[in-house]
């Protein structure tokens, strides 16, 4: 009585994206690697995930991923976040790749707004989901102009912006997404990672790829590349301070903390990186963290004020 629709029985390619688009994205990723910090425009086809929910990251992940990859995805540091779960299921569904929560075990990690606390090695790729790839957008709304500014390395207005905040508040007020100078040439948005993570972009062993789907831009930071947060001689970049604060679950510090409030309005701190926390709590091991001078200061202070914690 009612006709059926044979044509609705659709199958999808491995990793969902068609091979032509994958080739385009791959070519542009190579270009991005060749000009660290420069934003390469790409076609950015629609995905079955909403714009602003990680399409750029997915484009990169799905163009790069192979059968043997072990895939991990975090959202705001957590493997368990709803959107991370959704994207992990999607990637698994279209690739049948092994997925993992273990930072060290993963070969390909997609992230929204965090770099894992555990140091990444030269066999790993970290893919950032980027909402706004243009670090200059806050000081210049027109793409035509920001393109020229990058082309001519004309970053005076960016410096002014940081300087003004300093004049007004006595400090650089940029929170997450702290602008960085890459390879001494391009100012880049590291995506809205906390400042805590920014030093880990510098001279790392792993490859960093950035995908901004809605804005249709790809960029990259290759391993062993200079990535320097913008700062003045007498006003320095600083990471978030969690002075004297310890995680209420693991009893330790030296990692980026979340503030958790209860119904009474009291709050406690918990380590943000869910895999790092699991390893501390379940495995009773502290994974190898990144080494940078900012973190070292934090760890030194923590060790100086050591009190008997489990």
């Amino acid at each position: 009585m009612i006709p059926t629709f044979k044509k609705f029985d659709t199958q999808f390619n491995f990793a969902f994206i068609d091979e032509n688009t994958k080739r385009e994205i791959r070519r542009k990723l190579l270009k991005a690697i060749c000009i660290p910090g420069y934003q390469v425009p790409y076609s950015s086809p629609e995905m079955p995930i909403a714009r602003g929910w990680g399409t750029g990251g997915l484009h990169v992940t799905l163009s790069v991923i192979g059968k043997d990859d072990r895939f991990k995805i975090i959202d705001q540091g957590s493997d368990a976040s709803v959107n991370a779960c959704n994207l992990r299921d999607f990637v698994h569904r279209v690739t049948h790749c092994r997925v993992t929560f273990d930072t060290h075990e993963a070969t390909l990690i997609q992230t929204r707004h965090r770099i894992p606390e555990e140091q990444l090695n030269d066999g790993q790729i970290l893919v950032f989901q980027v909402p706004q790839p243009e670090p200059l957008r806050a000081v210049e709304r027109y793409e035509t102009k920001t393109r020229e500014m990058h082309g001519e390395a004309d970053y005076a207005r960016m410096w002014v912006s940081l300087y003004e905040a300093f004049v007004r508040y006595g400090d650089i007020m940029q929170g997450a997404g702290y602008p960085v100078m890459v390879n001494g040439r391009h100012i880049m948005s590291p995506s809205p990672i906390p400042r805590w993570d920014v030093p880990n972009l510098n001279q790392s062993d792993c490859l960093y790829l950035f995908g901004a789907g809605r804005e249709k831009r790809l960029y990259a930071v290759p391993p062993h590349t200079d990535v320097v947060p913008l700062e003045f001689e007498d006003v320095k970049f600083r990471i978030e301070q969690f002075s004297g604060i310890r995680c209420s679950m693991s009893g330790t510090g030296g990692a980026f903390m979340d503030e958790l409030y209860n119904d009474l309005g009291d709050f406690r701190h918990v380590i943000n990186d869910s895999d790092f926390l699991d390893k501390l709590v379940e495995r009773k091991t502290r994974p190898q963290q990144w080494s940078n001078k900012y973190l070292q200061e934090v760890l030194d202070e923590m060790n100086a004020n050591t009190d008997p914690q489990p």
Binding site: I33, C34, D122, L207, A220, P222, P223
Partner: peptide, 8 residues
């Protein structure tokens, strides 16, 4: 492999 060589 190409990406690995290009990045390194």
């Amino acid at each position: 492999l190409i990406m690995d060589s290009m990045a390194r």
